[in-house]
Amino acid sequence: MAEPVVKWVGGKRRLLPELARRLPADMRGYHEPFLGGGALFFSLRPAQSLLTDFNGELINLYRVIKICPRQLMTALEGFEFTEAEYYRMRDLDRSPGFAALSDLERAARFLYLSKTSFNGLWRVNRLGHHNGGWGKRGRVALYRPDNLMEVHEALRTARLAQAHYSHVLVMARPGDFVYFDPPYDTERGEGSVGYTTTGFSRMDQQELWQVCIKLHRMGARWMQSNADTPFIRRLYRAFRIEGIHAPRSLAGDPKGRAAAREVIVRNY
């Protein structure tokens, strides 16, 4: 089975059993508008899928893996695992020459920075510049050849696009299945930011709810992961809401990675 090639905020590897047992018995097409690490997609490998994310560098990585995985592996061999190399690569997006990089060069940079940054995460500031700090580690495995080829095979029939999540309204059809894994609501409602230049406020959560309503009315089935907050429970009260405990994996101190309350919401 293919596994995610990047660690992503809110990644779903640990929740796959919970998600898998709640999937519909059949689906015409598969859509994942907040793709991120794509754990659910890679575990299912549906024949017909549309995978989108607002992060263009992430989508570019997947396109390169889909088209030329072996060239990507070769490009990744050229990196040094030093602090100087890390910040040289990180700061490329501050220079005018960044736009001249090829898709392959951008994909290799993205994967290198994702693996060598602090906590192994991709984060950007509001100008779109990667702002993660050096992870202070030596050589790390940027990829596993067998898994990268499995990811390549999984993506061969998938359509990839950099797009806003509402794009699913244009592409989804009755009988299709949509999995939403948006930036989670927070107790104080200030929204979250990090993997794209924009945050995800409660106004965004309400707009996503409206997308879910429209999908429901057109006959598409959807499932959503989110934080278990009173706001989310009120917003989706007309649908099926189930609370679960999910292990945290992003705290700086491993001892502080306690389980968090989440919800899985479905319209079926």
Rank of each mutant, 00 (worst) to 15 (best):
L155T: 04
S117N: 02
H167N: 06
G11L: 12
D103N: 11
R221F: 09
T197Q: 15
V193E: 12
E242S: 08
Q224D: 01
S225K: 00
T186S: 11
R266N: 13
S95I: 02
V263P: 04
D146H: 08
G78S: 14
L92V: 03
F200N: 01
Q210C: 10
R123H: 05
T74K: 15
N267R: 11
G175E: 00
A238Y: 00
E77M: 13
L72D: 06
G194F: 13
V168T: 02
K136S: 13
Y165T: 00
L104S: 00
R257W: 13
M223P: 02
V9F: 12
V9D: 01
T74L: 14
R144T: 13
S249I: 14
A258P: 00
H129R: 14
G138W: 14
A220I: 03
P33L: 09
A163F: 05
L92E: 07
V211Y: 03
Y165Q: 03
L15Y: 03
K136H: 15
R257K: 12
R144W: 12
A47S: 15
S166G: 07
P247Y: 05
V151I: 08
V151C: 08
R137L: 11
A158I: 02
G78Q: 11
A25Y: 08
G243L: 05
P46S: 10
D93H: 09
N267F: 10
E3T: 08
R70P: 06
F110K: 05
T116W: 05
R22Y: 07
T116V: 10
G11D: 10
E85H: 10
D253W: 11
T116C: 12
H167P: 00
L169K: 00
E18F: 04
R266S: 12
E187Y: 15
N125L: 09
A141T: 08
Y179V: 05
D253N: 10
F81M: 07
A75P: 12
E32A: 04
Y30F: 12
H31P: 02
S225D: 00
V9C: 01
N131H: 15
L148D: 07
G56T: 06
R126A: 13
A107D: 04
R94W: 01
W222T: 00
S117M: 05
E242P: 01
G78T: 11
A258F: 11
